[in-house]
Design a protein around this nucleic acid. Structure first.
Length: 482
RNA sequence: GGCGGCGUAGCCAAGUGGUAAGGCAGGGGACUGCAAAUCCCUCAUUCCCCGGUUCGAAUCCGGGCGCCGCCUCCA
């Protein structure tokens, strides 16, 4: 398996530090508001990576934190006149609602910053002892000039950054790029006792402290959105390696951004789309497929139209799944004849290509394409050949094996097809009884060759948004349009 | 100003030296009483433009145009 490493700017062979074990840390969210589509991408990209590593047999320890002490939380709390704790708890709960609906697997550990203050203080003390951190007033800063490799992740030198610095010069800092490890708390802010007085941690130190606590001083994968490369991850490296003298992370993985109409989503542009808004309109699997069809490092442009067309794609895969389910239900023991064998081999070969694509830096777009090709092979055999049900079932088994991995790794096609196509009991354009009565009437009319009446009924239902599908066995199924 | 990315069909998108995956939409056909679904064919002689390297380039090099991100909180 090869993985693109932000640190080296190259694809590298993936070799975990400890055989068969993978430690993975992903920067979670600051809990001061509802999560948006950008968070969803990061969550789902790393969910896919976590799922794939497990699927390949690695023993993965996945850690994702909550930043529950931060300026933005404090501001929100003050604005609402409640405690920071209350804000954090509220949005942690909202976060869980969102990720659960998205079908993202829970990480193995989900540490909160406020529960690891002691570890952070410990780490800051280590840096202080080494002379890398300095106290300035009640604050403690990291002295970037003491870490010669500062800038290695983001690919810039201190000199370049100094030249282009738009950072306001803080009198207390020795250097404008120095960053806070510990901040003295102002009145009304949460605080903890520390060797430097009452205060709270800087943002970057929590990830160094928590990742090393749960994964060790050196671990395999650290991920997050592209925007975290600088300064957050750069500072994490400086803190961790500065303290331990050991390489912090082997592979840095960063996902691309979600844009709205080619523009970055931002509060100031007012183009934020929340996860919960999307999930009220589409099933989470539609969003997953939408994201999967673009490589995780590329920017992706979100739009409702694109989601609609992705829904069409998924429906198609579910129709295929429906046929697989039906065939497996009545499977019999038979050995494959020559034609069947050919199709089975072809599907297996595509199944294999799926893994090859995934092994190449998680090329989900290619991998999804392979599954669509297999679906076509399967449909062609099942709907067109004169093969027996037993032979078709053998092909369905090969397709099912492929689909199991797609479900496992991509988190799509997880429902029974009947559930996917199930119509809601309420909110139907017509009462369910009436629809079924009309469908039965039409069936009668068709038996009597009264096609005029049959078509009238079908057109009427169509005008109400109900589509009929006559099966070869004489039955008729109905579905809601799009 | 510094650093980085991108530009492939109507739309989305994979492909980084060997002759353009896949999906959505569209057109034609098979199937069907007619449809729907499914399948087949079709839909980029060409990958932003101009030069160059090469037997061979969407892929490498040089120049240009356009879009975007980071350098400040940010997934």
């Amino acid at each position: 398996m090869r993985v693109y490493n932000t640190l080296t700017k190259k694809k590298e062979d993936f070799v975990p530090l400890r055989e068969n074990k993978v430690g993975m840390y992903v920067c979670g969210v600051t809990v001061y508001d509802y999560c948006h589509i950008g968070h969803a991408r990061s969550i789902l990209v790393f969910d896919m990576i976590y799922r794939y590593l497990k699927n390949k047999g690695y023993q993965v320890t996945y850690v994702r934190n909550f930043t529950d002490v931060d300026d933005k939380i404090i501001n929100r709390a003050n604005k609402e006149g409640v405690s920071s704790k209350e804000i954090a708890e509220r949005y942690i709960e909202a976060f869980y609602q969102d990720v659960d609906t998205l079908g993202a697997l829970r990480p193995d550990v989900e540490p909160k910053a406020t529960e690891h203050i002691a570890e952070m203080i410990e780490l800051i003390k280590r840096l202080e002892d080494k002379g890398i951190a300095y106290k300035a007033g009640e604050d403690v800063y990291y002295e970037v000039r003491k870490f010669p490799e500062y800038g290695k992740l983001s690919g810039r030198s201190l000199e370049e950054m100094m030249a282009g610095a738009r950072i306001e010069v803080d009198e207390k800092k020795r250097d404008p790029l120095d960053f806070a490890l510990w901040k003295a708390s102002k009145p009304g802010e949460p605080w903890w006792e520390s060797p430097w007085g009452k205060g709270r941690p800087g943002w970057h130190i929590e990830c160094s402290a928590m990742s090393m606590k749960y994964l060790g001083e050196s671990f395999d994968i650290h991920g997050g959105g592209m925007d975290l490369i600088f300064p957050h991850h750069e500072n994490e490296i400086a803190q961790s390696e500065g303290a331990t003298g050991k390489p912090f992370v082997k592979y840095w993985i960063h996902n691309g951004f979600v844009n709205i109409n080619k523009e970055k989503m931002s509060k100031s542009l007012g183009n934020i789309i929340l996860i919960r808004d999307i999930l009220s309109r589409w099933d989470a699997e539609v969003l997953r497929l939408f994201l999967l069809k673009t490589h995780y490092r590329s920017p992706i442009d979100f739009s409702y139209d694109l989601m609609d067309s992705e829904k069409e794609s998924l429906d198609r895969l579910y129709r295929t799944k429906e046929k697989v389910e039906d065939l497996l239900a009545k499977k019999t023991s038979a050995s494959a004849d020559e034609e069947t064998q050919k199709v089975v081999e072809s599907i297996k070969s595509l199944h294999n290509s799926f893994f090859e694509a995934m092994d190449d830096d998680f090329n989900t777009a290619l991998a999804v394409g392979k599954f669509f090709e297999a679906a076509r092979e399967f449909n062609r055999f099942v709907d067109r050949s004169g093969a027996s049900e037993a032979q078709k079932a053998l092909v369905a088994e090969a397709m099912d094996a492929f689909m199991k991995d797609v479900q496992d790794v991509f988190g799509i096609l997880q429902k029974p097809a009947s559930l996917w196509f199930a119509v809601p009991e309420d909110g139907l354009p017509l009462p369910k009884e009436e629809i079924e009565k009309l469908v039965a009437e039409r069936a009668q009319a068709r038996r009597e060759k009264n096609f005029k009446k049959a078509d009238e009924i079908r057109d009427y239902l169509k005008s109400k948004g109900i589509v009929l599908e006559d099966r070869p066995d004489g039955t008729t199924v109905w579905r809601l349009q799009g």
